[in-house]
Structures are given as structure tokens and as C-alpha cells.
Design a protein around this nucleic acid. Structure first.
Length: 744
DNA sequence: GGCGTAAGACTTTTT
DNA sequence: GTCTTACGCC
């Protein structure tokens, strides 16, 4: 029986409704699938790929663009389970990783080495600062971040400096253009590409060299795109060129969930798809399998006010479920505190913590929830924030590794030249830059080629140490040494580890921990397949997104921004901070289309919920240390009041009688007893051991600094840091795990 | 040239 | 309230 089932065609093995099935089976031309939230979009996409493979198309003849690496990996797995053949060859990934893959093979066409470096945002900003300095432009009148935005916009429209020459008007734009031009030259000189280049340069190669384009156009028998509403113009061009007249294109998307306009995405791409690809067949998935009727009615009402949208309405045959709740709180601390308490009681009954998510507009909003959860000992996972690969010590290691692969990367060289300290400061740097200009090469190359004694007697030791370090490292890489071994050796020979160990501070220990974590990651990565090269590792980590790093834990509440939540679903959603100025963001007040995007963001948040949806806003919000008044979001005004239950919790005052305790009141010891019974997950036990001892305002005694009081707590688990005000007047930041307080 | 302190900016969202 | 940058002192 089971064997028979396995032999059935994919289309019969998957549970698909009528429209889904039609969309999978249709193969006569371009297809646009409007897939509303929770309508089984991933299922259709997966089935389609499996269906194509089953029809005889080789996995390597299929290109599928997804929004995150994580969903690409999951989809690959699901397809493999369906088709019983290896799908290793399948081209599935984000636009950025797919383009990087093409570029590694084809970039000689645009005078780039295949080992080019990919610059992340912080690399880009630091390069821009350098450009501004070179051009003697004041970075206060032209903030690097702003210029970065402008350049990114141009690249998302596939516009090079020379394309703009005749069209830019004002002084500011002229200056931006000057920076763009120089920035682009610097990137090329360093054999580096930024995120946007990955897309744009691929298109430029396709334009420049028809043979290359035809190679890929002929190779890919089918092109599939997920989240099509979030593609930008350059991605549109990429697809259009790749598909040509073959018309084998299948896109899935939902205009109501287009939330990346600020990043260059054009909602017009999906709305005008039928014009771009004549004879397109449109499929509309409108049956929602995710949410209860009450949630769906609320979400439908919320999005209705948008003008720019394709007509459609989600429906469900699920039960009504519980009504949506809208709660008003006094301030964001009370909001977090109350939600923490609610979560404790939800957890008592049936819902696991992992099925709960707190969604907010800005990263900064996570803080009050982290504090409340810590206080109530609720384990949580924060998605996003400062990522592992953005930490200074990790970036230092990455800079060394990048240089081994790409010696032209002056950005990375500048970062590590004097880390650890080798007595090579600004003067030494200038000397080396001059030498590199003379030799017309990069800084590292200049160092390797120069006679050290010519670089100034004062820096002789520093330069020669650095030179021999790289001689060793480059030799190791050439001889095929494993990436993790190279990293270990570089940490040893450079003296980086010694630098940290000799510091002997709590912070240094934490940094060593992070570096060990990086070594682990690299070791695991190397062992996962054959011929795993350092360069591939570097590429992978520069293209990971926040959600890629997120692992759903069964017993941890999820905290994330609305943008991160796209594509995910949770039983219980708390959508918080629904205030004018937050959702919609104050910075979008004067732009109607941006307001519509904010409303879509709101809609994305609402439609993540499967069973329970609780929205909330506050009367006062703490910003920059001040308590500022807030009002409810304009998006709530047009939703009929019968669609939700309104609860006003703002009247509660923080005192014992209402259940809201003052923040600094000394806690009694009875609490953990009760909670432990609820949270018996081993993951939580780890968590509670680390946090149980510390509270804000707690009095502590340190063996060197004496008595003091904890001012604030940040991070948790092994990363927890305590800011302590000691009675001798000094203020110290300590790693909780090393603080080693004595009993008071 | 390195290290510490103080003033300033900062919070929209991210591949 | 926190992180980054600039400047001044050793």
C-alpha cells in the first residue's frame, strides 16, 4: 500500500486544492500565482518543482529564487523527499546567492577575479567614508548612510554612474554621483562587490556578453520566483533576460505583502506581470488554511483601505475561533510586563512557548520585552539584532581570512593591520599606501613585495611580522589546509589570541568564546561536504540573513520585527506598539505610497496568526530615556469595532494591588518554585541557571570593586552583561558569568 | 602611537 | 539609555 503510494505521481501524493493543482500542472507559458497569506504558497512552489523534475527536467535545469536561504534549504529538502532523486544540482537560493554563483563563474568578463570579496553594509559604509575623505567632501553635509541609500537605489535600478551623467540635476545629486563613481572604482580596485552589485553586475554581464546570457538561458528550462512582489527592477531585468522568449516562468507572490519598497522593490513588478509576459495565465489562491475566521476578517478589514492592490479576498472554512483582542496599555513597560504575565498563563494550559511570537516595527522595541521576560524567567529567542558575524572580534577573523583569498581587499587590510597592536598606526599606514600607489597594487600586495627596510625603520618589526604571517597563511591555503586549521593558526601566529588572553578581563573572555564559536562553525561547515573551500564559507556567511540564523525552539517565545516575520506563522501572535509614528513609522507620514506599505506591513503581522491575535498600543512610550505621549495607530481607526474586543489596561497603576509591581521592589523567593513546575524544558533550565541570580537594582559585592548596585542587564545566558554602579563611584560593565559576586 | 573619557548621535525595516 | 566617534593625555 505504502509502496504504491510512493509510486504515484507527485500531483496525486500531495494534498492540493483545485486551483493549486491547476497551477502546478499548467506548463504552457508564463504563470502568475497570486497567493494570499496562508494559502499554501510554499506547497505549490514545492509541488511545481517536483512536478517538473518528474516530467523529466533535470534539477540543474531549474532555477528557483526564494527570499531567504533558510526557505531555500527547506524547499530543497521537501522536493528531494518528493522525487526520490538527488536534487543537489537544483539552482535554488536567494537572488543574491544565485547571482553570486553565476558571478564566480563569469566575472572575468567584467575584469573581476572569481575570488572577489562580498562587502556587507558596514564594509560599504567604511569604504564610503574613505571615498568622502579622498574627495574632500564633508561627511556631515553628506552622511555616508544617506549616500549608501542613494547608491543602492541606483543599483537596484541597474544604473551605473555613466548612465546618470546627463540626468542628475541638483548639487547634492551631482556630489552623490561623484561619490558613486569613485566608490565603484574603489570596489573594483579591491576586487569587491557590495550586495547590490551581485545583482547588477550579473545583469551587466548578461548585457555585455550574449554568449554567457544564452548559456544560462538555454540551460534553465524553468525559472521560478517566490515573493515576487518584493523584487526590484534589477531583479526584474535579470529574470526577463534569463527567460527570454522561452516563457518558462512561474512567479508566486502577494501584492498585499510587499514590504520592501524602501529597498528598491517595485510592487509594479507583480501588478504589471501580465503586460510584461503576454499570454500569462493567472491563478488566484484565496483559500486561507492558516488563520481562524475572526483573524482573517480583521486582517481583510485592515488591508481594504489600500488603493494600490489587485482585487482579491481571502476566505476560510475554519471555525471563527477567538476574537481578536486590542489592548491599550499605559506605557511600553506595562505592555511588556502584562504580555509576559499573559504568556505565563497561556503556557500553563496548552500552547508551547515556541508557538508564540511578539512582533514589533523596530528592533529597539525588543528591549522592554527582553527585560520583562527575563524578570518572569520566560525563555525567548530574539531574531536579528547584532548578529554573530557583526561582532568586532569575529569581523577581525573574517578580515584575515578574506585577505588570504583576496589580497586586494584593502578594507579588510585596514581593519587588521594593527590588530593586535604591532606599532603600525596612521603614519605607517600612510607609508604603505604610498608604496602601494607606486607599485599600483593593494596594500597587502605592497607589503609582500616591498623591501621592509624601505618602509621606515620604526615600523620594521611590525611590517615584517605581518608579512611573514601572511606568507604562512597563504602557503597554508595553497597547500589545501582545512579552513578551520588556517583560522587556528592565524589566531596563534598573529598573536590575536594572546592579546585577548593577556587582557584577562571578562569582556576578553567573552570574545575568546565568540572566536571559539567561529572556529566551531568553520569546523562543522568543513566537515559537511567534500572540497569545502574557505572562499565558499566566506561567501555563505556574507549572505546569511537574520532569519537564516533563527532556530525555532519549542520552549522559547519568539521576538522579531515584522519584516523578519514574513513567511512565518505562529499559533499566538502579539502585535505590539500599534501607534502612529511606530506603525506607520513617523518617517513615512508624508508619503501616501509609503503609508500603504506600512499598512501592508501591519497586514503581514496580522496574517502570521493561526489561532490567537492580540494587538496592543500604549499611551506613553520611552524613547531616548524620555517618556513621550503616543496615540493609537491610524490603521486601527477604520477597522469596524465589532471585529475585535477592546480592553483598556491603561487604567491600572503600577502598584501591588493591581498585580503590577514596581520595577525595583525587592523580590521574594517564592516565585521560582511555581514557575519551575511550568517550565520543565531542559532548555529553560539552562537559561534559568544563568539568570536566576540577577535583578535590576540588586545589591552585589565584587572582590575588587566592593559593594554596588546593578543598574542594567543586557543580553542573557552566557552573553549577559551587567552594568554595576559601585559605591566607590565607579561604573563597570561586567560579564555576568564571570562576575563572581560574593554574598552581600 | 595607544588608551581613556566625554560628547554626540541615534531608532524604521535588511539581502 | 546605548553605541560611536573625537580628542586629549600619557
Amino acid at each position: 500500500m505504502i509502496e504504491n503510494f510512493q509510486n504515484l505521481p507527485v500531483i496525486n501524493r500531495m494534498i492540493l486544492n483545485k486551483v493549486q493543482r491547476e497551477a502546478v500542472e499548467y506548463c504552457n507559458g508564463p504563470q502568475l500565482v497570486f497567493a494570499g497569506a496562508g494559502t499554501g504558497k510554499t506547497r505549490v512552489l514545492t509541488a511545481k518543482i517536483a512536478f517538473l523534475i518528474e516530467k523529466g527536467i533535470n534539477p540543474w535545469q531549474i532555477l528557483a529564487a526564494t527570499f531567504t536561504n533558510k526557505s531555500a534549504g527547506e524547499m530543497r529538502q521537501r522536493v528531494e523527499n518528493l522525487v526520490n532523486v538527488s536534487v543537489d544540482g537544483l539552482w535554488i537560493g536567494t537572488f543574491h546567492s544565485l547571482c553570486a554563483r553565476i558571478l564566480r563563474r563569469e566575472c572575468l568578463n567584467i575584469d573581476y577575479t572569481p575570488s572577489f570579496t562580498i562587502y556587507d553594509r558596514s564594509d560599504q559604509i567604511s569604504l564610503l567614508k574613505k571615498v568622502l575623505k579622498n574627495l574632500e567632501i564633508d561627511d556631515r553635509s553628506m552622511p555616508p548612510k544617506q549616500i549608501h541609500n542613494a547608491i543602492s537605489k541606483y543599483k537596484n535600478l541597474c544604473l551605473l554612474p555613466e548612465d546618470l551623467q546627463n540626468s542628475v540635476k541638483g548639487y547634492y545629486e551631482q556630489e552623490v554621483l561623484r561619490v558613486y563613481k569613485s566608490y565603484q572604482e574603489m570596489l573594483h580596485k579591491q576586487q569587491a562587490m557590495d550586495f547590490d552589485d551581485l545583482l547588477m553586475q550579473t545583469v551587466l554581464i548578461f548585457r555585455k556578453n550574449e554568449n554567457v546570457l544564452l548559456k544560462y538561458r538555454n540551460m534553465f528550462k524553468y525559472v521560478l520566483v517566490d515573493e515576487y512582489q518584493d523584487t526590484n527592477y534589477t531583479q526584474f531585468l535579470f529574470l526577463k533576460m534569463l527567460v527570454g522568449n522561452n516563457n518558462k516562468i512561474f512567479v508566486v507572490g502577494d501584492d498585499d505583502q510587499s514590504i520592501y519598497g524602501w529597498r528598491g522593490a517595485q510592487i509594479e513588478n507583480i501588478l504589471s506581470f501580465e503586460r510584461q509576459y503576454p499570454d500569462t495565465k493567472v491563478f488566484k489562491l484565496e483559500q486561507n488554511y492558516r488563520s481562524t475566521k475572526h483573524i482573517l476578517d480583521f486582517a481583510n478589514a485592515a488591508i481594504m483601505d489600500n488603493k494600490i492592490r489587485a482585487s482579491k479576498k481571502l476566505w476560510t472554512d475554519r471555525t471563527s475561533g477567538e476574537k481578536v483582542i486590542l489592548t491599550r496599555y499605559r506605557d511600553n513597560r506595562q505592555e511588556a510586563e502584562s504580555i509576559a504575565k499573559k504568556i505565563c498563563s497561556i503556557n500553563d494550559t496548552k500552547t508551547m512557548l515556541g508557538e508564540i511570537a511578539i512582533l514589533f516595527r523596530t528592533n529597539a522595541q525588543s528591549r522592554s520585552f527582553e527585560e520583562a521576560f527575563r524578570k518572569h524567567r520566560i525563555p525567548y529567542v530574539l531574531v536579528g539584532g547584532t548578529g554573530f558575524y557583526e561582532r568586532a572580534e569575529v569581523k577581525d577573523c573574517i578580515a584575515y581570512l578574506r585577505l588570504i583569498i583576496n589580497p586586494c581587499d584593502d578594507e579588510s587590510f585596514g581593519r587588521i593591520m594593527n590588530v593586535p597592536a604591532r606599532g603600525l598606526g596612521d603614519k605607517a599606514r600612510d607609508t604603505l599606501i604610498q608604496s602601494s600607489r607606486k607599485l599600483n597594487c593593494s596594500m597587502l600586495e605592497a607589503l609582500m613585495r616591498s623591501d621592509i627596510s624601505a618602509l621606515g625603520s620604526r615600523y620594521q618589526k611590525g611590517f615584517s611580522d605581518l608579512k611573514s604571517l601572511f606568507e604562512i597563511l597563504i602557503e597554508m591555503e595553497k597547500s589545501g589546509e582545512s579552513p578551520d586549521e588556517i583560522l587556528k593558526q592565524l589566531l596563534h601566529f598573529s598573536g590575536y589570541m594572546d592579546m585577548l588572553t593577556s587582557l584577562n578581563t571578562e569582556e576578553a573572555s567573552a570574545r575568546i568564546e565568540n572566536i571559539n564559536e567561529l572556529i566551531n562553525a568553520l569546523t562543522i561547515w568543513s566537515s559537511e561536504g567534500q572540497n569545502r573551500k574557505l572562499s565558499s564559507f566566506l561567501e555563505e556567511i556574507s549572505l546569511v540573513s537574520d532569519v537564516d540564523c533563527w532556530e525555532k525552539k519549542e520552549n522559547s517565545v519568539n521576538l522579531m520585527t515584522l519584516h523578519c516575520a514574513k513567511g512565518l506563522e505562529f499559533k499566538h501572535i502579539f502585535l505590539v506598539g500599534l501607534e502612529d509614528g511606530i506603525i506607520p513609522s513617523r518617517q513615512n507620514f508624508d508619503d501616501d505610497s509609503a503609508i500603504e506599505e506600512e499598512r501592508r506591513l501591519f497586514y503581514v503581522g496580522l496574517t502570521r496568526a493561526m489561532e490567537n491575535l492580540e494587538c496592543s498600543y500604549v499611551d506613553y512610550r520611552w524613547r531616548f530615556g524620555d517618556l513621550l505621549p503616543s496615540t493609537q495607530s491610524r490603521f486601527l481607526n477604520t477597522i469596524p469595532s465589532e471585529l475585535y474586543n477592546y480592553i483598556d489596561s491603561s487604567i491600572f497603576i503600577e502598584n501591588g494591588s493591581n498585580g503590577f509591581k514596581p520595577r525595583f521592589e525587592t523580590e521574594t523567593r517564592e516565585k521560582p518554585q511555581k514557575k519551575r513546575k511550568v517550565f520543565n524544558d531542559p532548555g529553560f533550565d539552562d537559561f534559568s541557571q544563568d539568570t536566576i541570580e540577577f535583578r535590576m537594582g540588586q545589591h552585589v559585592k565584587h572582590k575588587t570593586y566592593g559593594r554596588g548596585r546593578i543598574l542594567s542587564i543586557s543580553g542573557f545566558g552566557d552573553d549577559m552583561k551587567l552594568t554595576v554602579l559601585f559605591n566607590n563611584g565607579s561604573r563597570k560593565k561586567l560579564m555576568a558569568k564571570f562576575a563572581n559576586f560574593e554574598s552581600v
